[in-house]
């Protein structure tokens, strides 16, 4: 075994486990700076606040795993909660019915994305960029750009605790993670999502219905986005015109930081996306507590995404190089 190959292998192992390495680093960093951080309360808070980003990021992971991207999740969150909120105002719905309507709206939104990407074959980022703008426009048209407040019956969910121990957002986040993990690892569709992301053409040749698999990924992403939107609204109490703007950023960042490759086929929901979402939340909590200028936050999160994407790209190049070696008979 020669030196460069050895070095590459170590580097690759490091890059593969980057989420854990980063997370531990960040955790220790915060711990040293603010010893309070290790208390249960602050950890619980971080996870609770990360829950809605995490749920959206889990959906995003499905799309990224197929090698696509969904920029419209923020608009989806906004539009589906606006629709739910308006229905509550108009028809005095129960929380459960509002929830169903919210998810239904998210599903419809996602089906549009899926149709445009898989049937009309438009490049994903352009397709979802268009639905991002159109979706927010539709939402603001429906809401007349006014904030829509949600009744107490729903906001109660945001602050309630299961058995008076675990906050509901965390429970729902955990359930989402579990459901997504089962979908990806214990169903045929999930395995096929990985196959499609590895190589679309090979997947087609292997007899996989690639159109359906990619569509499923977009639909899962949209449904989770509206779900995350609902939970976020339950914590905030109302939907204003800027709700969900930039959430696509946080979701992509959480997924990519969690080790999901933008190039498809690589990464896992657990613990990857969980760590990614908590990291994003830790950073923004940390910035607030360090009293960093509010205007700097978006710049810092942009830098973090840049680093995550750079790492992902480097890992992909390395993997390709190592596969090239495999051409040779050893």
């Amino acid at each position: 075994m020669n030196m460069t190959a050895q070095k590459n292998r170590i580097l690759l192992a490091a890059l593969r486990n980057m989420p854990i390495i980063l997370f531990v680093g960040l955790f220790l960093c915060f711990g040293v700076l603010a010893p309070d951080f290790f208390r249960y309360q602050s950890i619980e808070n971080a996870v609770k606040q990360a829950s809605y980003v995490g749920i959206v990021a889990v959906g995003m992971a499905f799309v990224l795993l197929t090698g696509g991207i969904d920029l419209s999740v923020g608009s989806n969150m906004y539009l589906s909660t606006v629709v739910a909120g308006l229905c509550i105002q108009r028809f005095a719905l129960s929380p459960a019915a509002a929830f169903v309507i919210c998810i239904g709206a998210g599903f419809t939104f996602a089906m549009t994305n899926a149709f445009i990407v898989t049937r009309l074959r438009v490049v994903p980022f352009i397709a979802t960029l268009a639905t991002l703008v159109a979706g927010r426009g539709l939402g603001r048209m429906l809401s007349q750009s006014r904030a829509i407040s949600f009744p107490e019956t729903i906001t109660r969910i945001g602050s309630a605790r299961l058995f008076d121990v675990v906050p509901y957002p965390i429970v729902l986040f955990a359930l989402t993670l579990l459901a997504a993990w089962i979908m990806l690892h214990r169903t045929q569709w999930g395995r096929q999502i990985y196959a499609v992301g590895y190589n679309l053409e090979s997947a087609r040749k292997a007899g996989i219905n690639t159109v359906r698999i990619r569509a499923i990924a977009y639909v899962v992403c949209g449904v989770f986005a509206s779900f995350g939107g609902f939970i976020s609204v339950a914590q905030l109490g109302n939907v204003n015109a800027g709700f969900g703007r930039g959430s696509e950023f946080d979701a992509i960042a959480a997924a990519v930081l969690g080790g999901i490759s933008l190039f498809g086929g690589i990464g896992s929901i657990f613990p990857g996306v969980l760590l990614g979402a908590v990291m994003i939340q830790l950073v923004s909590t940390g910035l607030v507590s360090a009293k960093v200028d509010l205007y700097l936050h978006s710049m810092i999160s942009a830098l973090i995404i840049f680093a995550a994407v750079a790492i992902d790209s480097h890992r992909t190049i390395l993997l390709k190089k190592m596969q090239q070696r495999h051409i040779r008979i050893e």
Binding site: L71, F125, F249, F263, S298, A302, V309, A310, S313, I317
Partner: peptide, 29 residues
């Protein structure tokens, strides 16, 4: 970033978009 680090162009420019629009707002508050 795209040519040397081989990062996907839409991601790179999405990030710079976010960074520099944040920067412009920060500069002028």
């Amino acid at each position: 970033a795209t040519a040397k680090l081989r990062m996907p162009p839409f991601m790179v420019t999405l990030v710079t978009m976010s960074f520099f629009s944040g920067f412009a707002i920060y500069l002028t508050q």
